[in-house]
Amino acid sequence: MGFFLLRRAFYMVVALIAATMIVFGLSRMAGDPRLLFLTEQATQEQWDAWGKEMGLDRPLVIQYGIWMGKALRGDLGKSLRTGYSARDVILQRIPATLQLASASFLFVLVVGIPLGVLSAVKRGSAFDVIGRSFAAFGQALPPFWLGLMLMLLLSVKLGWLPTGQRGGLDHYIMPAVTLGWLAAAGMLRLVRSAMLETLDSEYIKFTRAKGVAGWTVVWKHALRNALIAPLTYGALLLTAFLTGTVVTETVFAWPGLGRLTVTAVIQNDFPVMTGAVLVFTALYLGVTFFLDLGYALVDPRIRYR
């Protein structure tokens, strides 16, 4: 297990470096950042001064080396748009992103798994119809539209919830549902199909025959064995929530990493852009790392050598 952890950590570092090389190269292929910032009356003197300040007067490889060296010391450079430390800009957005991602993930778990289990156990019943309807709506409704409709109904018409921005617990409801419904639908379907398969297996029948209580069979024996696929899906969802929530962030005026990154991309603010990708990649690798560990915990048959 120890060797496995070490090897995984090494691969994570390699993947991180590779990702930064790709992003750094692509950001420069998008053009000289000065071409996006200097105005009509810009002079050669300004062009040169900006280039020197940004290190653009050096070969790309050297630029990357300098950037990487600084990145290892936690210095991701300064935002071209604001002059702020790119690291600080990214760190400031992480809490908002984590809050929204956590709320949405909680929604997925609380709604998707129980409904999935109920749909499987009570197959063909009202629970199953409700569950499948929930899944169908979730997969059919575009999050952008869903968010605005929720806002129209719950904020404008009924006045129950605030329209957006961060705040108390009531501020989380609509963004979490908007972001999480589609994912919860997927989770529901995945849990349902996995549970149906598991409930039909011989060992479950045997457990029932032994007289074990019905819900104990479902929640303790069946669900645990049906969780491998939902666990993988859940881990990928969490990563997606952390990195790709720009639509929900835009609709609900949520100051997260998604909007920050899209803005940085549009403005070719490469210090922020590369820094954000670095964070995303690290998050992704971290989540998959813990996912691998989770497999072993959930299913004792899985062991790493």
Partner: peptide, 25 residues
């Protein structure tokens, strides 16, 4: 964990970057 899974993870990382770059376009 094998070399193959390393490349798979590397490809996954690339895919993430690719998605981001697609978003740029």
């Amino acid at each position: 964990m094998s070399t193959r899974s390393f490349w798979a993870r590397l490809a996954s990382s690339g895919l993430l970057v690719g998605v981001l770059i697609a978003a740029i376009a």
